[in-house]
Design a protein around this nucleic acid. Sequence first.
DNA 1: TTGTACGCGTTATCAT
DNA 2: ATGATAACGCGTACAA
Lengths: 338, 338
Amino acid sequence: MRATIKDVARSAGVSPSTVSLVLNNRPASISGETRGRVLRAASELRYRPNQLAAGLVTKKTRTFGLIVPDIENCFHASYCEQIERCAHREGYSTLIRIAQNDPNKTVRYLRDFEDRGVDGAILTSTMFERPEDTNLCLEAIDELRIPTMLTDRVPPERVPGAVMPNDFLGGYLAAKHLLGLGHRRIGCVTGKLFIENCRERLRGLQAALWEFGVPFDPALVREADFQFSGDFDQLSYLLGKNATAVFCFNDTIAYGILRQMRNYSLRVPDDLSLVGFDDLVFSDLTEPPLTTLSYPVEAMAAAVVEGLLRKIEGKPDAGAKTVFDPVLKVKGSTRRLG
Amino acid sequence: MRATIKDVARSAGVSPSTVSLVLNNRPASISGETRGRVLRAASELRYRPNQLAAGLVTKKTRTFGLIVPDIENCFHASYCEQIERCAHREGYSTLIRIAQNDPNKTVRYLRDFEDRGVDGAILTSTMFERPEDTNLCLEAIDELRIPTMLTDRVPPERVPGAVMPNDFLGGYLAAKHLLGLGHRRIGCVTGKLFIENCRERLRGLQAALWEFGVPFDPALVREADFQFSGDFDQLSYLLGKNATAVFCFNDTIAYGILRQMRNYSLRVPDDLSLVGFDDLVFSDLTEPPLTTLSYPVEAMAAAVVEGLLRKIEGKPDAGAKTVFDPVLKVKGSTRRLG
DNA sequence: TTGTACGCGTTATCAT
DNA sequence: ATGATAACGCGTACAA
């Protein structure tokens, strides 16, 4: 069996508390000699404290709980990985749970986090299709006695204090870029519009249109899904509406449009300008490389973790940056009209 | 504060042990009346057992530890997600750790798993560049007193009992497909060859060549990296060697080749046939869609989890399928030579 | 400087 | 049918 603190104590000829004092570098002054004996015994027995027992008494487990909708989505995978890295850098383990956009799972996982004594929770999606589900989730968070950070897909009323992407700006930048190139009929293939982030991107687009004095035509907006599905045919619809450019709310959707373009023997950007969102690694490899918007995922992850640590330590959450701006990466899929 | 078992006991007018018996459906017969009182009290106080305390005494935490090299790699992300799902289906939480191919991190995480009392560990990569690192890792696993399943990147000596992809077959199928199409000069862009899986794929290719009586030319093999890097130029080298087809050891590498082909104004499959590996979702979207090899990731995940459960329950590990064959998905990137 | 004793929240054993 | 009591392994006042 595994050595316990008692075994170390016995082997070093001291009491368990002395072992604890030494190993935790407690202010209590321990003679260099016993300290040495303890350390030697501990390493000989390969002693490592049982974290369950330690957590039980200290109420700290140095664990974060992270709930994500999925990780097959590259953006989430990347965000997830960055969060795990930051957490690790701060000495925390990360219990990752994949909720598949299921509010019930989300709530269950949340409770499980509390049962397991995680020190803090991070949720990258707290908006669901049915508003009552969103409320259910928010209530569960409030009942929870655990510091919690929301990020990415956050209901509007909870945005203060959350680490947020500036999706309005993203939409604005994309549209402005296209407008600047002379496009006036800009089609849009959005993600699910119950996601506030998508609506924000849409608002950003509208703001840019307004700035250029171009009327907003709702007929140019098509709601799709962030998951890829190759069989939709938003493209022919939008072309039918005389779109000269299409703004896709993520890169995966843009890949689909790119594919459809080839099916029609049309060319990007000659026959249609295309803008994506997320700047996945693959977006440098498409033909042409995809003009897209990029978030500083690493910085966002760092902000989430930092914010959570502050909450855990009870510090005021001042200072931490909470809104992150996307950057437009102009590659080859957009060009001047005409 | 959160209600404990004692609070419930007090509220129901019984002892903590009775509460425990009721809530855990112990064989001990409890009168329907007290049972009701306990259940009512528990739900009124919203009692949920502290898993740390429970784990401390039962030595079970219903948690798996999962160590992956990274999850930005789509294949790993997918595998990871499937494993998490299977684990959840079986009532287990998954502590996911990203080791970034760092053997030291791997070992540290492993120990941490033990400290936290996870019931079992899953490692998707236990092969490192330096053999001594691999050994270090294997030794750490052996010293660990935790049921452990290895999968995917496993050192040859540990394959028995591991859940493995049949990479030999993958290499064989890819090469046979190309040979069947008349190709004789087949270039190869591999992943790092210290990974046994890559060497297996290479052996599979050699076997197919042998079958067709085509001599193996080492000059046609280029070692690359599974992570994408757009700046390599393996293509011009292989074309210089008169390759008429290229077998890339993963789809990401193939995307890079596809891109290079366009830079040279060459066409796939007319000027070069291309085969990838992994069948990422994006491989239906490339132009042309990428012929590639696909593993039954879900089934593999299920097998890993099942195997781990058997080990945990001390059952003999008979029956579980442990080698999984890839399937060749012929899409548009390969064609008959000439 | 070190040891004793207690508590963390739970389950298991053994009485009653 | 139910309740004391003793673990589980650790940290920490407090005592010595």
